[in-house]
Design a binder for these strands. Structure first.
Lengths: 345, 345
DNA sequence: CTGTTAGCGCATTCAG
DNA sequence: CTGAATGCGCTAACAG
């Protein structure tokens, strides 16, 4: 009653009537059933076209069919980091005529463990978990309910599950090693949120590189950040207060690296002459700022695409259990890094 | 058959059975119908809780009810511009327990005029059109189908329809006037995509300010861009080739302003001493770059929120036809602008 | 106040 | 190859 405003619906029945067939037949041509005379199929198709018939997805979903919608659970939408991943997801989805339903963490992380699966009841065929924080909450329920899902960018510390991530460890290692090879010996590191696997891995990569090159790790040269610009600023400021400040600072993401740059400049130090700065992510802005930022590129869009492909694959063939895929990161060398020019290094 | 993997469904019937009532009663407590004995309601609620019952939205939707999902049609997801708007939408939506379905232009802009309405058939209660290009295509059909929608950031040149935008004209005017008052007389302007209402309005604002202050408009000082960084670079380069180059450049968005800055620097000119630069949007990076960018802030998140509120309002009360709302832009003065220091101005 | 019933639009047997 | 009948889970109208 209240929805006189819904689009005037042309149902399978009306098509059937107009095409002089039963609704069963119409259903068959819709679903490309073989058992339809070519001539009949032709006629029905024509009528569907003419009447602008569109299948009602609710009804179809009710029958336990696929909805052709997949859900994505993301932390937020404000960062270009998520944007990159989403773009990949969207691209791949549209290739396969799937639609996207978006959920943000803040709404559901409340406490209900099984809420995800429930909420998603019949609404979506599968779920893409982007950068989940308390991953076990979801994966347990999801696995138990046998609900198809793929995790993006989270190194599961729990049970193995379908996931795609990036080689964060390698990225951290490579960037650090690059700095070392440039001649840096005191390298400050600003972490991301340590509850995220990727943050931990980047830190581990940093440490490994140090170890490999026989550089002792200084606790005062590791600052715990939270991926936000102020953390970068604060971390760099702390480093620069040190009796022996680092000659290079490696921030766990580009946004924090921007904060680092600010802090460095505010002390009238030059980049890279006095301090080299490295970021992580390769967000578009890192190429645009001055000096342009040396950083570790994450294949964000590709991660989105690959994860989507995996999920679609699982949907098609639930038995074949795929596992974790790691996409390579790549060190992008720009102009925020150089050999240390002052003797302190 | 293929979906043994769907979450094990506990239906209204099972709850009814366990609670020793009819399914009708269960439906009533779900929908907060008054005609239920408190004691009964209690018991049924308990059982629902215990069984982790969750309403099947498909079935509910089938009955022509609200789905509690609204759709957003966006051009893409990669820009922080869209991110800002989406954030507002999402925030407001979650306040009202609505979910979000996301569609991107590229998938549907193809050609089918009524595809939007059709696709959306029963899937969503309403539609948010973010920055639509060929707006008439949608609004016509949508209006004809009486499908609730709100347009975000598009000054309709066609029929009036519910919309929220920003005061682009005013923003263009204010920024230009600010430059004029700083002493600039030759001000280059780089437009956005001219098929977008906001781009046209910004240009008009620029022109009006010029006219108000009796500065003749030079055709060679208006460069048509497309909101991408290379356009800013190209536009600025063109300006700087001029016999009498401008002393200030106003780009229709921040991203192009970054391009402008690059071009200026590449000619060894200083910002703002030689050339002042102004952008539009106030994306996060504009505060982070060096020099920080003077720009016109758009209330992106608020636009998302207000539009969502409007849509939800329309959903509740279809008759009251709301109209266009314009949210104010604001000039943010930073360090990329100053009075012209060279005599050429 | 509560139980019963009729569809919503569609896929899917089962008969022809 | 096609038509008729059944039910997915739920709401709403109708009887008690």
């Amino acid at each position: 009653m209240e929805n006189k405003l819904l689009t005037s619906k042309v149902t399978i029945v009306e098509v059937a009537k107009k095409a002089q067939v039963s609704l069963g037949t119409v259903s068959r041509v819709i679903n490309n059933d073989v058992h339809v005379a070519p001539e009949t199929r032709e006629r029905v198709s024509a009528v569907m076209q003419e009447m602008q018939y569109v299948a009602n997805r609710q009804a179809r979903g009710l029958k336990g069919m696929k909805t052709n919608v997949i859900g994505a659970l993301v932390p937020d939408l404000a960062t270009s980091y998520i944007g990159g991943i989403m773009h990949g997801i969207d691209t791949e989805l549209s290739l396969h005529k799937f639609d996207l339903m978006l959920f943000t963490h803040h709404r559901i992380a409340i406490k209900e463990a099984s809420y995800v699966a429930d909420m998603v009841q019949g609404m979506v065929d599968g779920l893409l978990l982007v950068l989940p924080r308390n991953i076990a909450d979801y994966t347990d329920t999801l696995t138990r309910h046998k609900f198809p899902f793929v995790v993006i960018d989270h190194q599961g510390s729990g049970d193995p599950c379908p996931a795609v991530g990036a080689t964060n460890w390698q990225g951290g290692y490579n960037a650090t090693e690059y700095l070392i090879k440039q001649g840096h010996k005191r390298i400050g590191f600003i972490t991301g949120s340590m509850d995220l696997g990727c943050s931990q891995d980047r830190l581990k990569g940093y440490r490994s590189a140090l170890r490999t090159h026989h550089i002792p790790e200084m606790p005062e040269l590791v600052y715990e950040g939270d991926f936000n610009q102020p953390d970068g600023y604060a971390g760099a400021s702390a480093f620069l207060e040190l009796p022996f400040p680092p000659t290079a600072i490696f921030a766990s993401n580009d946004v924090m690296a921007m904060g680092v740059m600010d802090a460095v400049r505010n002390r009238n130090l030059r980049i890279p002459d006095d301090i080299s700065v490295v970021g992580f992510d390769n967000i578009p802005q890192s190429a645009m700022i001055n000096p342009s930022l040396t950083t570790v590129q994450q294949p964000l869009e590709q991660m989105g695409r690959v994860a989507t492909q995996m999920l679609l694959g699982i949907l098609k063939n639930p038995k074949k259990d795929v596992n974790r895929i790691e996409l390579p990161t790549e060190l992008i060398i720009r102009s925020s890094t150089s050999a240390p020019k002052n003797g302190t290094g």
